[in-house]
Design a protein around this nucleic acid. Structure first.
Length: 214
DNA sequence: GCCTTGATGACG
DNA sequence: GTCATCAAGGCA
């Protein structure tokens, strides 16, 4: 099946990771399944710059079955599981052999909101009555958080290493580029253990966007 | 021990 | 609404 829209080329990802992270804001992540299409605009990301970055899974050049994808070519997916429960979705960046990636922390939902809600319904039952009118989902409940967006888009370990220039999971240009004034930067979330690296302002988000995770 | 989330309870 | 605390449970 041809993709619905033209995916970003591999060259987009094969650049310095901080540039890719910033430029990923405003792009659209599309997930196609037999049940339907779900998609959202990236509004919050974090860069992980192994092997130097203490906060990166590839810190110190750590190369295991889990981190292998980070060493692979740019534009492929790095999916990992945390706390035994949740998946997180990353885009591999930079040159092959340089284990760097960008974690996607939040999306602004654009397509398939009801399907997303269905996939998240187990935990959403309390929120759903307020959301009976489909456009009235409260911000963040569908895709505001790295594990939430994976559940909403049905991204799992089966996408580990997937080539993100091809269906059924790919990125394409969004509605419009995000100007520098709209981009905010700050420390990354959940990396308190990372010493001096935890202060690096390598989390980027669209200022004021209600879907940003926190 | 972890790049998380949802539930619960305190507080205002 | 906020904030703090806790438990869920796979894998290195």
């Amino acid at each position: 099946m041809a993709p619905l829209r033209s995916p970003l080329p591999a060259e987009f990802y094969r650049r310095p990771t901080l540039e890719v992270a910033r430029d990923l804001l405003g792009t659209e992540l599309v997930r196609e399944t037999p049940e339907g299409v779900t998609a959202g605009i990236l509004v919050e990301v974090e860069a992980y710059l192994g092997p130097e970055d203490r906060a990166a899974h590839s810190w110190g050049g750590r190369r295991t079955a889990r981190t292998e994808a980070m060493f692979g070519p740019a534009g492929h997916a790095y999916v990992f599981q945390t706390y035994g429960l949740h998946f997180c979705f990353n885009v591999v960046t930079a040159d092959e052999g340089v284990p760097q990636a960008v974690l996607v922390r939040a999306l602004e939902p654009t397509r398939g909101l009801e399907l997303m809600a269905r996939r998240r319904q187990l935990r959403l039952e309390r929120a759903l009555p307020a959301a009976v009118s489909p456009d009235a989902f409260p911000p963040r409940v569908l895709t505001g958080g790295p594990a939430r967006l994976c559940q909403a888009l049905a991204i799992t370990r089966e996408h580990y290493g997937h080539d993100l220039t091809r269906p059924p999971l790919y990125l394409c240009r969004g509605r419009s580029p995000v100007p520098d004034e709209a981009v905010a930067a700050g420390p990354r979330v959940g990396v308190h253990y990372a010493g001096e690296w935890k202060e690096k302002p390598w989390r980027f988000w669209i200022r004021g966007n209600p879907h940003v995770s926190r």
